[in-house]
Amino acid sequence: MLRNILLCILLTLSPFAVAHDHGAGDIRIEQPWSREMPPVAPTAAVYFVVHNAGSEADRLLQVETPVAGKAEMHEHLHADGVMKMQQVQEVAIPSGGEVAFMPMGYHVMLFDLKQQARNGERFPLTLTFERAGEVAIEVVVLSQPPAESTGHAH
């Protein structure tokens, strides 16, 4: 009975009450999340922070997930007084540094979704780094961005 009570408590905790930290080698991925979108939305975005504790820089080269037909890395740019989004082929992760994938910055765009995920659901995303290799993470879907997602720069 105690086991069932503990299981119920764990299932009712906020998605970020437990740290969501994934990694390989010197690379750590912190707090991967995606915003809940309307069921008819054709795309979604994924955000997280990449930390590189190593003495050598790394590069994020590819992203993929089984929940979408295509996943791409994008960034927002302010050019000629207009904000625009463009695909990037790689993202440099400096040694001893971090890069935040956050709204209005770097982010992962998911296209051709099989269905939109709902608040509290999770889905897998694989990040492929030049040095660290593949890092499988679990993305949590939230109705509102976590407070911590606005405190990082890239």
Results as ranks from 00 to 15, higher is better:
K84E: 12
D80R: 14
V46H: 06
A79Q: 12
A57F: 07
K84T: 14
E75T: 10
P94I: 06
H78C: 03
M73P: 06
E56H: 07
M73G: 06
F48W: 09
L60R: 03
H74F: 11
K70D: 10
V82D: 07
A71Q: 03
Q86E: 15
A57Y: 01
V91G: 05
G54L: 11
Q86P: 01
H74Y: 13
A79E: 14
E64W: 11
A53M: 08
V88Q: 02
G97F: 01
V49G: 03
M73D: 04
V63L: 05
S55E: 12
A92R: 11
V50Y: 05
Q86K: 13
H76S: 12
E98C: 10
V91L: 02
V82I: 12
H76W: 12
I93V: 15
L60M: 12
Q87P: 04
E56W: 00
V91F: 02
E90T: 03
G69F: 00
A53L: 10
L77Q: 11
E75D: 05
G96H: 05
G97Y: 02
F48L: 13
G81A: 07
V49Q: 09
S55F: 00
A68S: 11
E98Q: 15
E56V: 10
A44S: 15
A68Q: 06
V46G: 04
E98G: 12
V91K: 01
V99F: 05
E64I: 00
E75V: 13
Q89G: 07
H51C: 01
H74T: 05
H78Y: 14
E72T: 13
V88A: 04
I93H: 04
A71P: 02
V88N: 02
E90K: 06
Q86W: 07
E98T: 15
K84G: 14
G81R: 06
G54E: 09
M85V: 15
T65F: 08
H51Y: 15
A68K: 02
E56R: 13
A79C: 02
